[in-house]
Amino acid sequence: MREISFAQALDEAVAEEMRRDDRVIMLGTDFTGDPLKEFGPARVRYTPISESVLTGMALGAGACGFRPIVNWRMVTFSFVAMDQIVNQASKIRYMFGGQADFPVTYRCTTGGGSGSAAQHSQSPYSMWMHLAGLKIILPATPADAKGLLKSAIRDNNPVVSFECSRLNAVVGAVPEGDHVVPLGVARVARAGTDVTVVGLAYYLQEALKTADEMARDGISVEVIDPRTLVPLDVETIRASVRKTGRLVVVDEAPPTCSAASEIAALIAEDAATFGALRAPIQRVCAVAVPVPYSPPLENAALPDRARIAAAIRRVLDAAPVPA
């Protein structure tokens, strides 16, 4: 199978969907590649730096028959459009009783690890999960980047596409043709028997590398990629934990009210899964600080393979949870 980068996979997804459906339009201050050349200025709209109006315009145009893709660029900039995201996009369908659909895709990059400091290193997945009303994709591989983004563009709801910056250069196999990955289906990225590790975005890749390293010590790690956070395929994670009895969740957001917290809660409150737990659940998250700039500080703030491995060893060494 051909191999392309995560960034190329995202570009392919958009271009293919633009070709497939002429109601798909793009709004943003900048685009990768040269979509203007193929699709023209009516559909590829270079905008002023006006995040609120872009976010809201997509809803208005979406309700009137178009399928806008808004590129916020960094998730940082989406915060300027909080009203349109929180009060409008996430609520507009339900509060109007389902009268209209709002098929809008909001794209943005996320994550740290690039020396971009506090504002431009954020991973606020759980803020949007909390809203109820937005679907959320979080691809970790080039194949899923393409397949999930295509599903997002075809979905008839507002979907937020969180695209981890550190994955942009990652190269991987992507099927030829119309490769679509459904929303709400997790992937067992590596099968194992001793411990379940759920890795989000870049940390899926890091969890897989950690699992390779630990396999040399005879430790069998099952690695799961949720792929979409809303809807979340919790059953695949529960089934894995019922098999392994141990769970580590790796997420580069700070731990408080995070996606990792939500996954931990969904595991702990399910009686059958809770009963199968043999160790306390562990979260490996960022330190709860704005991501600092200087490399030693940034490295200390974000999860790494050593911390993932240490968490795996903790759950393996833990005394069994009493019945």
Partner: peptide
């Protein structure tokens, strides 16, 4: 206002 602007864009 933004939502109306989006509707106008669609029109």
């Amino acid at each position: 206002l933004p939502i109306a602007a989006g509707a106008a864009l669609a029109l």
